[in-house]
Amino acid sequence: MTGHLRATLRDIAVVAFAQSVAPDPGLSETEMLLPVLTDVLAQAGLAPGEADFTCSGSSDYLAGRPFSFTMTLDGVGAWPPVAESHVEADGAWALYEAWVKLLTGDADTALVYACGKPTAGDLEDVLTRQLDPCCTAPLWPGPAALAGLQAQALADAGGTVPPGPGSTVVDGAAAVVLAAGDRARAMCARPAWIHGIDHRIEPHALGVRDLTRSPSTRLAAERAGAFEAPVDTAELHASHPAQEVILRRELRLTDDVVVTPSGGAPAADPVMATGLIRIGEAADRIRRGESDRALAHATSGPCLQHNLVAVLEGERRP
């Protein structure tokens, strides 16, 4: 089933990226998103509604109302109607859906966005609702408790967990424009070409997983082509220091790799946009000429249950 990376049907690149900076907590998701969308579309030279495909990621449980994404569509300019989809997940998975759509040839450009307002509720409680509703959720273990379990498992296995900050939960939005082939070259001086993306999930129950390992990250990285050549940069979605230790090992990152130069989730963790931002930040390093081959990682679920890896490359310079 999963032997070799298949050659993809066409070349697709990240050509634009924008994110919010410390939005006012009184703003709605749509209000938070609109300037970000305006920015990213201007970078790509696209008018609102002009992208061939639009895909977003968000969570009703952060917004506190069902169908919350229907309102953010107001910021897109979806008139005349647009080809559009939504994932109930981090925007990194929306980018994956859009990448697949572009691979089919049915679209040449895509707008991908994500937003989250985790400060609207108590995130420690809210995220417990992701857990198995029969066995784990009734115990209400929040992200801090789960981080403790993972750090302790690593320590028990003889690993060293460096002291460091956890994530800094903030509200936020992010957006990316993808384009295929010559459209990408026309939109961006140095596109961040997507060499490969893959994502894998693990069993949910904490007790059946070795919390010191992340086999889904390793497999996704293999399938995305991460190990075919060294990367110079890795943007990791790690919400506490133990996770970074685990991810560095699974991704075989050597000491010369620049890891999460953006600051990552410890600097700002707008939940549901954090993973998409990792891809955007890695792409920006390539677009600016600061990286030639970068890896971006996004995670979802308790203790790194579900992981996505994207490998981005810039054209070789003469």
């Binding site: 989809s85 992701q130 857990l131 894998r200 693990e202 579900h306």
Partner: peptide, 25 residues
């Protein structure tokens, strides 16, 4: 009343080690 239920359904769907994409439109 379950946030992102695909996470806990990964086992029931035989999805361990595979990609699971969750759509909501």
């Amino acid at each position: 009343g379950v946030m992102m239920p695909e996470l806990h359904l990964a086992d029931a769907l035989g999805a361990a080690g595979k990609p699971v994409l969750r759509v909501h439109t």
